[in-house]
Nucleic acid binder design. Structure first.
Length: 655
DNA sequence: AGCACGCCGACT
DNA sequence: GTCGGCGTGCTC
């Protein structure tokens, strides 16, 4: 007897194995098999296909009978996710089996380590929350539905979906909650604990191997009732999942950009569809795709209009930087500086947001115009002062700042151009000498150090915190009055089709940090384009009007959600090979009336880590089976092995 | 993706 | 003669 087995490797193909005498295996069973000289865990995927030479076929080494088989819905999810993302099925299966050790028979001690039963605390919901919760609870059951929980920060979205989760849990189902950055959500966990009286199972890239093992087993056995995790938690083989929540569904971190390139929100909807269960997408600033689906009546909208504390949303002021006269090396407008000073005088705090690490994004020689560029990437070197050096933010290369210009030899002529957060900190120190200032970005040494800075801000030991996106979410600073966006136009540069949507989302979220308790917050948005629709929408709090406008623009440009894109990235070490191969591939690209082939064109980072990168963009009608055409195209074209080809379906980042 | 196999240039 | 460069093909 033979069975086909899928292995957690990079291959799409299942392999045929012989079932030894006395062994009973069925579809979905976990097994150990010899493969390419190694023993690998794998999953029985179907009956033996029978067209393999019998001398090649090896026997299954072991059936892992202590584990319940992978459910049919889970196997279908692997199949469909692989087909959608154009990834090998084995690569998707690998995301389901993250721990080799977890598959072995647990020791007695491991079996004993169980967790406490759930004791519920009755929720106390406002009227608006109760209405929303009732609507959401009515979706719980064996039926597919997508609900969009739309409410500003502080409107109590979390409590509302907790309440619906309780319904699914009471029915004996597992609930999965996906969060953008679990590591930073201490606050989320304590709210969960307050509501459910226990801790959920946690899943993200940096949990310990022991936790990984324990949690995976609890998930496959159905013992883990609530799992909260980053996007990778979606692919775990849940025994009986009854509900999926995607919180902050608009977040770009749900999109995985290497290996299997998937969007966890979209895959969550696919998963819920397969399992016939409800999925909840929660956000204060829903993505345009989600918004469009609400309008198309595919998704149900549940709105939570107000902050439950009753404190008004912050007052947003646009600062027209064209009208400002700034001192040399200054980047902060007078109105913003005055408010920071006033806040300090009143015992309040300020937060300055700039999505740029380091001191200055570019260093140039004032004498000859020489710019410091990375030797392996098409990118400028960023000047850092805290750890003094010039560094490439794409490959990690760093060098010392020279005394003289390497091109013309001039000394004292090297100039920092533009601000990074370190330079803004320097400006605050210069203009408000008694301010207690800190900067926060991924450059901070360790997780502990980041937590220390955040704690200092929470305890009022800092006056001004300056940071990158790292400070945008999850934190609650009771004394924060002023939020300043140093360069609101930054995200609009560079031709990203989602720039408008993303700028609104990020700036809205940052602004939402201000004035969450006693008083109304103040948000200053420094821009050179104060008449831009995004800026006007932020100032007026007119999100929906901006969404409508942006939808119109996307429709005219035939961009998502009115079309679908696939980004075909061709890269390699030899520039000429990459260019000729890209041209050849484009010339034999699918010729279909519902598909446009754009390019080849140099990718935004043409050179990255000494590889040359060219892209072909496919733009297809939504109804078209684009994946099918792409597979046929690349199989027919047989790309040279000297180049790598990556296809990103529904790309989010165009780098 | 790894890893082995195999066919050509540089050096002992 | 041998070492080792990386192009090509396979993994049940």
């Amino acid at each position: 007897m033979f069975v086909d087995i899928l292995l957690p490797n990079h291959l799409n193909q299942a392999f045929t194995y012989r079932v030894p005498e006395g062994l009973r295996v069925g579809v979905g069973d976990y097994v150990l098999v010899p493969f390419a000289g190694r023993m690998l865990p794998a999953v029985v995927w179907g009956e033996g296909s029978g067209d393999v030479a019998s001398n090649k076929i090896k026997p299954i080494a072991e059936a892992l009978t202590h584990l319940p088989p992978m459910p049919a819905g889970m196997r279908e999810f692997v199949e469909r996710a692989a087909r959608y993302t154009l990834s090998p099925r084995g690569a998707v299966l690998k995301m389901c089996l993250p721990s080799f050790a977890a598959l072995h028979v647990p020791t007695a001690r491991e079996r004993a380590a169980s967790f406490a039963p759930v004791c519920y605390t009755p929720p106390s919901l406002t009227d608006a929350q109760a209405v929303a919760s009732d609507t959401l609870k009515s979706t719980v059951g064996a039926r597919f539905s997508v609900s969009v929980l739309d409410g500003v920060t502080g409107s109590g979205k979390t409590e509302v979906y907790f309440d619906a989760m309780a319904g699914a849990l009471a029915a004996g189902k597992q609930v999965l909650v996906l969060l953008p950055e679990i590591a930073l959500s201490v606050q989320w966990l304590s709210r969960f604990e307050a509501r459910f009286g226990t801790r959920p199972h946690i899943w993200h890239s940096s949990i310990s191997p022991a936790q990984r093992k324990h949690t995976w087993r609890a998930i496959v056995r159905g013992e883990a009732q609530v799992v909260v995790g980053a996007r990778s938690a979606l692919f775990l083989p849940y025994a009986n999942v009854g509900m999926v929540v995607v919180d902050e569904e608009h977040e770009a971190t749900f999109k995985q950009d290497d290996g299997v390139m998937y969007h966890a929100r979209d895959m969550a909807v696919m998963k819920a569809h397969i399992e016939k269960i409800p999925v909840v997408l929660a956000s204060a600033t829903p993505s345009l795709e989600t918004w469009h689906n609400v309008q198309q009546k595919k998704y149900q909208l549940i709105s939570l209009p107000k902050r439950y504390t009753g404190v008004e949303l912050p007052q947003v002021q646009l600062v027209d930087m064209r009208q400002e006269t700034l001192g040399r090396g200054d980047f902060l407008a007078k109105s913003l500086m005055d408010s920071v000073v006033q806040a300090m005088a009143d015992g309040k705090q300020a937060l300055l947001f700039l999505n740029r690490r380091g001191y200055a994004p570019l260093m140039l020689c004032q004498h000859c115009g020489h710019r410091f560029e990375c030797k392996s990437c098409s990118a400028w070197l960023v000047q850092h002062k805290h750890a003094p050096r010039l560094s490439c933010h794409h490959c990690g290369h760093a060098e010392m700042v020279p005394k003289a210009c390497p091109a013309c030899g001039s000394e004292e002529k090297l100039q920092a151009v533009g601000p990074g957060i370190e330079r803004i900190a320097e400006e605050i120190a210069r203009r408000i000498p008694d301010a207690r200032v800190a900067v926060l970005s991924s450059d901070n040494e360790s997780h502990d150090e980041v937590q220390q800075v955040l704690a200092a801000m929470q305890n009022g030991e800092l006056d001004v915190l300056i940071g990158t996106q790292l400070i945008a979410k999850g934190h609650h600073f009771p004394k924060l009055r002023v939020v300043g966006v140093v360069d609101a136009d930054l995200g609009l540069e560079g031709g990203d089709p989602r720039a408008v949507e993303r700028t609104y989302q990020v700036l809205h979220q940052i602004g939402g940090r201000a004035g969450r308790e006693e008083e109304r917050g103040l948000v200053f948005i420094q821009t050179y384009a104060p008449t831009h629709p995004v800026m006007k929408a932020l100032a007026a709090g007119e999100r929906d009007a901006l969404m409508e406008l942006e939808l119109k623009m996307r429709k005219v440009a035939h961009m998502p959600p009115f079309s679908r894109l696939a980004n075909v990235l061709i890269d390699g070490t030899d520039e000429r090979t990459v260019l000729t191969e890209a041209r050849r591939l484009a010339s034999v690209a699918p010729n279909h009336p519902k598909l446009r082939v754009l390019g080849p064109a140099p990718a935004p980072l043409y050179r990255l880590k000494n590889r040359f990168r060219v892209r072909i963009l496919l733009q297809a009608d939504r109804a078209l089976d684009m994946q099918h055409l792409v597979v046929a195209w690349l199989e027919e074209a047989k790309p040279a092995r000297a180049v790598h080809i990556k296809v990103d379906v529904d790309p989010y980042h165009f780098m």
